[in-house]
Simulated assay, not measured.
Amino acid sequence: MITNGWLQRHQVAVYAVAVALAIGVGVGRPEAAPVIERFIDPVLAVLLYVTFLEIPFVRLRRAFANGRFMAAALGTNFLVVPVVVWGLLHLLPADPVVLVGVCLVLLTPCIDYVITFTELAGGDAEQITATTPALMLVQLLLLPVYLWLFVGPAVAEAIDAGPFIDAFLRLIVLPLSAAWLTEVGAKRSSKAAAWQETMAWLPVPMMGATLFVVIASQLPRVHDSLAQIAVVVPVYVLFLLVMPLLGRLVAGLFEMDVGESRALVFTSVTRNSLVVLPLALALPAGYELVPAIVVTQTLVELTGMVVLTRIVPAWLVSE
């Protein structure tokens, strides 16, 4: 019999099956991609809802008051990461389209499934949740500045804040509010309590579903441009290798405990690819390749996250 504990113990196998199925569908049935793409936001919202349900809101309120973690998360994402990205850009050809795509995705810290991956790695997920409003606001303000510095003013002026705000409301505020209402209701109603208990089964299956819809819907977009965008893959892999180590270093400097350290590692490395994709699609003519560059980072990162959920607790930030 499959139990919640069984799902937790075999989560990597569940994700591997989801990724394999997604690749099969993405390659074998590329015409299905537009239909599958419509499910990305709903599936991601449900994933975050069931993730938020696992975080008692009394602990979340305390997390908001943790100024040390907030400072470390903001400093790592908006001081350390830009320096790393600036260095990585020198490994790429001097093509503005490629540089814009890489900057767009690597300079924006994740605000959604980073919470789930942190939880799966035994990290302090409520700390990540508490930082999402600040991470969202600061990246909204600083992304045009970094693009202006790294690429030039023309692209910075083309960035619209609308998709950022819309994604934050749909993918963070709405699921978080629903989780809070469920938690309140569970204290007053046996039916709500039973609902909350049932939802505890869903984090692993919903992460598998998220991996499936993202990869199956976006792989055809990447597949058509493989020769042109292959150059960015080593840069994305290097980012995945470097940032967990730097995140761990910063956590040590701030003398964080195990849960906080793991949380800082994951917020350092995960990027906001699903949120910036609408921005990439909205760029002016001449930047048609940027969405494929962003999606490539999604595929590389999701694969890396499955590995990091094991490596971080077992080696990088062990008990």
Rank of each mutant, 00 (worst) to 15 (best):
A251T: 01
P244C: 06
Y236I: 10
A121L: 12
L143Y: 02
L171M: 13
V317I: 13
L106F: 09
L283H: 00
L107C: 09
A71V: 12
D257T: 10
L174F: 10
A216M: 00
G5Q: 10
G75Q: 01
T3W: 07
W148I: 10
M305A: 09
I2D: 07
T132H: 05
L141Q: 03
L79A: 14
S177F: 15
L240Y: 14
A16N: 07
R68S: 15
G304K: 01
A65V: 14
W148D: 10
V17E: 08
A156D: 07
E54Y: 07
L253M: 11
L21W: 05
E255L: 13
V290N: 05
R262F: 03
R271Y: 06
T210S: 09
L60I: 06
R188V: 14
E288A: 15
A186D: 11
L283P: 02
I111Y: 05
D41A: 15
V222W: 03
A130W: 04
E157I: 15
A186M: 12
L7R: 04
S225N: 15
K187Q: 15
Q228P: 03
L211T: 01
Q11G: 10
E126I: 05
Q196F: 05
A73S: 07
G67A: 09
S217K: 05
V46Y: 07
L174D: 08
T298I: 06
L274T: 13
F78S: 01
V242Q: 10
L316G: 03
G162S: 15
I172G: 05
A161M: 13
A154M: 14
A156E: 06
G304W: 00
A121Q: 09
T309H: 01
A216L: 00
W195R: 14
A158N: 13
P96W: 00
S318F: 12
V231L: 08
D257P: 09
V265F: 02
